[in-house]
């Protein structure tokens, strides 16, 4: 089993926290997950908060960043924070993937320990998109 892939959700309001809580109801508790809200934070405040979470991880940790809406402040702050990371860390930081939803998150939690990251990322995009249907 490879080293755990950490998941960090950066979202508006309590969305990330609640997605993780909901995933826990379905899958049970999982380690190496965290959520960060943009609530009340300026652009720089949110970038600093993201950097704080990134720097709190072990030096050799792999990380996948998940954000909600493309072009919104969590997405922008995430990209700005990643751009300020040292190259050696940046190589183990993946994403951000935008539009995080429950199917995508459940797949990430279930498959992150068994699927190499280069295969996991396209799989997550597929699962996230496949979760949006006109159900009849």
């Amino acid at each position: 089993m490879s080293a755990p892939l950490h998941l960090l959700l950066i979202t508006h309001g309590r969305l990330g926290e609640e997605l993780l809580a909901t995933a826990t109801l379905i899958l049970g508790p999982r380690d190496h997950t965290d959520a960060l809200s943009n609530d009340g934070l300026s652009r720089e405040g949110l970038v600093e908060a993201v950097l704080g979470r990134l720097e709190a991880l072990p030096e050799d940790a792999s990380l996948l960043l998940l954000v909600d809406a493309p072009g919104a402040s969590p997405h922008l702050a995430c990209r700005l924070a990643l751009a300020r990371q040292p190259l050696e860390r940046r190589e183990r930081q993946h994403g951000p993937i935008t539009g995080v939803n429950l199917p995508l998150l459940l797949t990430a939690l279930n498959r992150r320990e068994t699927t190499p990251v280069d295969e996991l990322l396209p799989l997550l995009l597929d699962r996230g998109r496949a979760g949006i249907l006109m159900a009849d």
Binding site: S42, R43, G71, A72, S73
Partner: peptide
């Protein structure tokens, strides 16, 4: 707006 352009602005 100290967040400049973001979701609240565009959407």
């Amino acid at each position: 707006d100290d967040r400049l352009v973001h979701g609240q602005v565009c959407v």
